[in-house]
Structure formats: structure tokens, C-alpha cells
Computed example of a mutant assay.
Amino acid sequence: MQNVWAKRIVAGKSLAVYYLQSEAEKCHNLYGKSSRSKDIKFASHLFLVKENDVFVFGMECIVYKKSNKRTIFVAKVDSSGLGTQAASSSALAASAIETVINAQYEEGAAEVEVTLFAISQSQYLFPESSENGHKHVLSDAGLLHWWVKCLEMVRKDYYPAEEQCSEATVNRNSEDVSAEKKKHMAYMFVPGLPSLRSYLPNSFWKQGTALQEGKAIEMIPRYPDDPKARYLYEIQDQRSEMSVAEFWDTLSFRQECCSGKLVGFYSLSLPKHTVEAVSSRKKNFDFGLVLPPKLYRIIYDSLLKRSFRSLSIASQSTETFLGETIAAIQRVNGFSMDKVVQTIEGNAKPVSSKKRDPEPPQALNVLQPRKKKK
């Protein structure tokens, strides 16, 4: 686990990475009333990165499990804007995703897919952080590029050979791509944009979606705060036979995807046997304390009540949150501080200011805020 993070943190810098998980629960409605929802379980994963006594980055992933397949849904990503260039936010996001991926392979998964949708907003995990004067919010187009950059980092660690997919593959329909190649491809779909040529970095990436066959209500998953979920429920209520392909074609006309902001849908499939996964296996195994679902949600909700509107307030919010969290989880079975937090010393070469991405700590958000339960 250390190497997954250290190689993306600047040498001479160190970051504290906190990692909490929830126990797996039954998930009955991922595919609506379809039988595909049967026997699916999900577990939440929360990463918080601290630098100089303040949270600078956070990510929540939800892992859906059925048999030996895992789908990692990146639910929320945010930065407080208070980092010091020890690592780019995209690098931290890639490291968090890889930590979860490796854990799934350690548990015996044979197939892992990373999926998410991107909507540019100002803040989610760090309330009021857009007011601290340091946070710069990405535009919708900027966020789409940012996620390609992040997922490309992950892709290179697990599948470095780009020549497996020819340039022609990028512009072909998904049904023309062999099943084997689909296992090692990244897909990007933006409703309403006819061409994503400027976004796709190489032949590994394909415009469109991996899923193109079957009935929409039976085959397309419905994730938390999903902009396409309302449409799926309407189709279900109408008992429509709309196909998956027709669903994607008509999604661009929906208010959720045509209100002036670009919405990006991503998926990345990865092979099991990789150098990164094998080299990280032993170190990754003991990181991430597993909590009862109710306790995990209490801790998560408490984070959303903190303020990050200035450095001093954010530092106090970080200290208070961590103090209350550690007190609440000390009696959890298997508790140890090594499972909760690890300090990572960076070994990456600093990027010169001329070559560095114009990417100050930014708001990196992929979802609508989680609604409070009534």
C-alpha cells in the first residue's frame, strides 16, 4: 500500500492517509426489479488525507460485490484547497482507487471495474471549503479532463500496453470490440457531445459505454445520487422495453444531462494479475479498519457537519473530527491505529513549475450532496 501512495507524493513530503470501511450489506435495488440485483452486497470506503494538521483531500468509494466480480463506484471526491503541492489531487485520487482495487483482488475477485460519473460542483466532503480563498473549482470540461488524467494513471499501473487496442478501436461501436479487449478498456460518455476526441489520450480509451445490450431497466445500474437513475425509474414505471442503446441515445435530452453542464460517465475494466497488485498485496492487507455500517454512517455524516471555510477553522474541524472518530472506533474488533492511519513518505521527483499542471488544490466532485434521511 505504501508504494501506491509514495510514488505520487513529492520526495521530502509526507501525508497522513486515513482509511475506514463499512461491513458489507445487502443491496437489493442496484438494477431495479431485475433479478440481476439478487445477491449483491455493498461496502463503503472512506479516505481522508491530512497534511500539516488539516484535511486536504477526501474520497468515498462504494464497492458492489457479487460472486467474484467487483464494481468500484467512486461516489464523492473533494479537496479542501489547503494542500501545499505535496501531491496533486488527481494523484491522490488514483492512489485511493488503487488501494481499493488491490484489496478486492486480495479478497479473491476475478474481475474489477471502476465506474463513476462526473458533475462539477463546489464542495461535498469539506463543507464551506469553497469560501476559504484557496480552493479553485474546476469547470465541467475541466473536470472531465481531470478524470481522464486520474483514471489514466490507474490504467497505466494495471495495463501499460496500449498497442493492444488500435486507433480504429476508439471510434468503433462497442459491439465491434472483442470481449477480451473490453476487459482492458476505458470508456467515456458525455451526453450531448458527439465527439470526445480532445479528451481521449490514447487508443486504450473509447468514446461510449461498455454496456450496449439488453433492456435498460434490467442492465443499467442505479448508483446513489445518480443523474440517470430518475430516468430509469420512469422507464420502469412505464414498463418500457427501451434498450440499453436507446437509453444512452436519449439521455442527452433529459434535464439531468442538458441543463447547461456537461456530465461525464466513465468505466475502467482491469485485469487481475498485475505487478502493482502483487507488489502491494502484503502491505495493503492490514490497512483500512472495517466498521459496522451504522457506525460508519455516523462518522461520515459527522464529517459533513464540519466547516473548512478558513485554514484555522479547517484545522480545528480536522482535529475535532479525528478526536471524536478515534474515540468512537476504539472498541471496534481489530482496532489499531495502523489500520486507521498510515504516514506516507513521498519518493516522487518534484515537477518543475514550468511543467506542472495548472492544478492548484481544487474542488473535485462527482455527485450531488447526499440527502439526509427523513
Rank of each mutant, 00 (worst) to 15 (best):
L46Y: 09
A43W: 15
V332C: 13
D176K: 01
V137L: 03
E175M: 11
Q123A: 02
Y105Q: 00
P127V: 11
P194V: 03
K305L: 07
Q362C: 12
S129C: 11
S178T: 15
S67T: 14
F204N: 01
A210C: 11
K181F: 02
C258A: 12
N202Q: 05
P227S: 09
K349V: 15
E107N: 06
E218V: 10
S44G: 04
C61F: 03
S35T: 15
V54C: 11
S14H: 13
F321V: 13
T343D: 04
D53Q: 10
R356Q: 14
W248P: 07
N347V: 15
S352N: 13
R70W: 06
T169D: 04
L144F: 01
E152P: 12
Q330W: 12
I217Y: 10
H28G: 11
F308H: 05
S315R: 08
H145G: 02
N132K: 03
A229P: 00
D286S: 09
H28F: 14
Y300P: 04
D357A: 08
Q212I: 15
L367Q: 07
D301W: 08
D357Y: 06
S130V: 00
R297V: 15
P369A: 03
A86W: 00
L193K: 08
V366M: 06
S80L: 06
Y199N: 05
P194E: 14
Y266K: 05
P201K: 09
Y124P: 04
T318G: 11
S259G: 04
S267A: 02
H28A: 08
Q121E: 13
L262S: 03
K261F: 12
S88I: 09
D357C: 05
K65F: 13
K41C: 07
K65Q: 15
G288W: 02
A110Q: 10
E218L: 13
E276V: 00
R70N: 06
S353F: 04
I329F: 11
P350E: 14
R230F: 05
Q368S: 13
S353Q: 08
Y19K: 06
E213S: 14
L48E: 06
Q2P: 04
E106H: 06
P194T: 04
R254Q: 14
G108M: 03
E107I: 13
S259N: 14
A186Y: 09
S67W: 11
A93G: 00
T343H: 04
T343E: 09
G58S: 07
Q212L: 11
D157I: 02
A11Y: 12
A43E: 15
